[in-house]
């Protein structure tokens, strides 16, 4: 009886670990800066004497019906493919509501408010792992109109375009812009999804492409050039990255005594126990190494989405 129980337990354990699922990236459609600028959906502010413009997504979603239709069509197609997108308009609304709720929340007995560091505040923006950046304009030749359409899938961490579809539709005398836009979405989405699929295939084969930053607090008296058994700390970190990446793939973009930047780091999607990894879990192992003897350096680990982690040395 005992044997049967052990067998069943190991069997279910095997099933559980055997079907590990990779962390699913989040996707969100946003209009491009160029589109917002051409439509006048921009916010202008004075940045220490320099006038700067940033896109006003809230106004764009409140006022542009064509934008809502296009975003909704893309969302619908992606949901049919089993990949529902985050809806930017709803994300913006829930961020505003969450902020208001945080301001109003106080503890019942001690009257404390919600703890929020300046970094936490900065991180409260609409974000996704892959941004589907949307641009279109209407071209006119005499009475004929056509739509030039461009959809780019941009990876938020590597800043690379991982998918794309673009082109100009057939000019029409009579069709309305809304119809031309729908036609553009319908005819371009298959190619877009195919290129996104190729990106995912590459990710499963060669690992997720992420960015790792190493920094130091200025209160820490040592730096990355400190030597341990004839090796600099920076080299020890680099060796760890090399040993733990898929096919040893990474690029060391910057290396000074104060900071290191690793780009195009191909981290595995699963750990040794077949559990899905994000960049924080991945870099956590490096943190453990550095915090343990002989280095014994306290470190602070912060993450940004699935694909970026920063390890700051010298403090917690």
């Amino acid at each position: 009886m005992k044997r049967i129980v052990i067998f069943l337990f190991s069997f279910f354990l095997l099933i559980n670990t055997g079907f590990g699922q990779a962390k699913k990236p989040t996707l969100m459609v946003l209009p491009s800066d160029a589109w917002c600028n051409s439509k006048g959906y921009m916010l202008e502010f004075d940045n220490q004497g320099t006038k700067e413009k940033i896109p006003d997504y809230k106004r764009a979603f409140q006022e542009d019906l064509d934008l809502i239709n296009v975003v909704s069509k893309i969302n619908e197609i992606m949901a049919q493919r089993g990949f529902p997108l985050k809806n930017a308009e709803t994300v913006l609304k829930s961020l505003a509501a969450e902020s208001a709720e945080d301001n109003m929340t106080t503890g019942k007995t001690k009257g404390g408010s919600i703890a929020e560091s300046p970094v936490d505040k900065l991180k409260k923006t609409a974000k996704a792992d892959i941004i589907l950046q949307l641009t279109w304009d209407v071209l006119a030749t005499g009475p004929k109109k056509s739509v030039r359409f461009n959809l780019q899938g941009l990876d938020s961490y590597s800043n690379k375009q991982v998918a794309g579809a673009q082109g100009t539709g057939e000019p029409s005398f009579s069709a309305e812009v809304a119809v031309l836009l729908e036609e553009a979405v319908l005819s371009k989405m298959d190619n877009f999804v195919t290129s996104l699929q190729s990106h995912f295939d590459d990710m499963f084969e060669n690992g997720r492409e992420v960015v790792i930053r190493i920094k130091k607090f200025d209160s820490w008296s040592d730096d990355l050039e400190k030597e341990y058994n004839g090796k600099q700390l920076g080299e020890i970190i680099e060796d760890w990255v090399q040993a733990n990446t898929v096919k040893n793939r990474f690029s060391k973009t910057d290396y000074t005594e104060n900071m290191m930047l690793f780009e195009q780091v191909r981290m595995p999607l699963y750990d040794a126990s077949n559990k899905a990894l994000d960049t924080r879990n991945f870099v956590r192992n490096l943190q453990k190494l550095i915090e343990a003897p002989p280095y014994s350096i306290p470190c602070k680990l912060t993450m940004k989405g699935l694909g970026q982690a920063t390890l700051t040395l010298g403090d917690k």
Partner: peptide, 15 residues
Amino acid sequence: AGGGQGCTPQKALTN
């Protein structure tokens, strides 16, 4: 391949 009539080139279902 694409062409006239508002046609867009389409990739195969499998890569």
